[in-house]
Design a protein around this nucleic acid. Sequence first.
DNA 1: TAACAAAATCCAATCGATTGTATTTCGATT
DNA 2: AATCGAAATACAATCGATTGGATTTTGTTA
Lengths: 338, 338
Amino acid sequence: MSNKPTIHDIAKALRIDSSTVSRALNDSPRVTKATKVRVLSKAQELGYQRNMLASNLRKNITNTIGVVVPRISRHFFSSAIQGIEETAYLAGYNVIICQSLEQLEREKKIVDGLVANRVDGLLISVSMETLNYDHLENLKNSRIPVIFFDRHCDISGFSNVLIDDFKGGFDATEHLILQGCKHIVHLSGPQELEIYKNRFEGYKAALKQYGIIYYEEYVNSSRLMEQDGYISMQKLLTKNIPIDGVFAANDLSAIGAMKYVKEQHIKIPETIAFVGFSNEPVSEIIEPSLTTIDQSGFEIGKVATQLVLKHIVSKDWAQPEHTILIDAHLIERNSSKK
Amino acid sequence: MSNKPTIHDIAKALRIDSSTVSRALNDSPRVTKATKVRVLSKAQELGYQRNMLASNLRKNITNTIGVVVPRISRHFFSSAIQGIEETAYLAGYNVIICQSLEQLEREKKIVDGLVANRVDGLLISVSMETLNYDHLENLKNSRIPVIFFDRHCDISGFSNVLIDDFKGGFDATEHLILQGCKHIVHLSGPQELEIYKNRFEGYKAALKQYGIIYYEEYVNSSRLMEQDGYISMQKLLTKNIPIDGVFAANDLSAIGAMKYVKEQHIKIPETIAFVGFSNEPVSEIIEPSLTTIDQSGFEIGKVATQLVLKHIVSKDWAQPEHTILIDAHLIERNSSKK
DNA sequence: TAACAAAATCCAATCGATTGTATTTCGATT
DNA sequence: AATCGAAATACAATCGATTGGATTTTGTTA
């Protein structure tokens, strides 16, 4: 029947003022040690728990960072969240995780909701549907620091923390070249997405640097699901290209492509070597295990959080925007060992 | 400089009272349509966004459900979260997702934090370290409805939504028997955990029902990582048991076991058939694809949410505790097709 | 013991929205 | 035009914690 105890209940029980109770609970120097002890023990006794809604309302600060990702189940994002949480907790901040499920409508609602709940900062990785940026532009008047990570969008005024996809694409391709591959095809993704464009550019740059001619028909774009990789590989092989290496823009499509190749009784990596991108957990388990580019989700999450925290404490909303690139590392496995 | 606009700003601009603004924004019948329009357009103009902290404080309701899981990256949990979110959003509730990372300390902090933020209900899947239940017992005085799902703990007064692990273990084993297996070994997990005990019991029950003798040395317990499965299989095979079927208590260990078997050039499924448990995404991708028990995370999330919502709206904290079992379904793939 | 500074505590306003009650406004009726 | 009732709006208290300033208590010194 009686509701949760408040500082007033503690105050009444001890015949002191609620402001003193509040200060005692916050360990203010304006309160004697003796009363602090009395307050604390009474709080314990009553099972008091601070009402954060009231506290945050008054202080106009929530000590909370909102995070918006397409899907928490994707390995890259869940490790990014790991990095975000670690960093935030160390700084005394809480984290609210939300997933847009790649839907623009949902992303809008989530962002509005987080703002309405007065998060102190926002970390956003936009959905694949996010081609209209109105809801993000709006954030500028809300005085909430916003950092985009991994999937950004081209709006001025916001900082970004991104994977160096160009270098990743370069390294992947270079690795195949150093393994002796001469005819390397590339399974690419939707070219509207910055990340796939950059991986593609990295591929071309590596070829160029090693004096290998780039052929347009060596490249096949798709949505990069497993099935897409399977079909792409089928297409490429029927072109009668003497393929000896495949760089896929993500692991899933690499796995699909490998499946087709294995069905054709072509040897991996002896005849055709494979490199993927993202280092999904499955890539270590399949056979042969897949060489890939590890995008450290943890690292990107950590850096993005540090950046947003800097903005929050500086209280300077006119922070100069800037973009931080995070390195992606090659992980050599069996699919490319010639 | 000027802070975010409030209802008072709207009120002042329109020379009306803030209570009227509040009612207008909430579409109360006590306000004329005309003023509603004026308020709404002014709100839009000023870029007003309701302060949920204030609203929730006043209403003593947050329309939010807190969710605590060990890891969001585990497929089962992320699909459970999917089910929770869908169901909650349909009912107009928000969801706060937190992960304990299997750590008791973290779980404690999370639960306290959620209570301090006055969530209306809690859905908890406890960590592996949660053998002390004090922080959960405390929840009883907080008058917040709590439902345990999947991983529960034996405390009276809370309801549970669980996977029917016994039936899952039974079905998996029965499937192998029906495929003609006569010597089925079982890779089991830590016996302190209810779920593994139940899967084991299901295994024994199926053997019994089909008149197959149960041998203790056919069972090997471990922590069920991939490596564990590999080692367990090695041990079992060197015992010179004529194994023709393996029921693993999770997919990862099944995959490890299959790896060893493949290395020994034993044919799967012809010589030894495999069934796992959990239906991890990887199980569909590996070769041969793994027959497994699908624990519908989505379903369990949905049911748990419906239950907690029922408790919330009924406002009856003395709801009788009860346990709902969710069916787990066999998914037949290539690893068991004889 | 009176005086005074410092320490401890209390008072009261505030954060922004909600809500029961009181008041005003308006139109209809006589 | 006076009266009445209903509709619309205004007033004021409230949710629980925080915080600057006022007041009281305490301890020290003359």
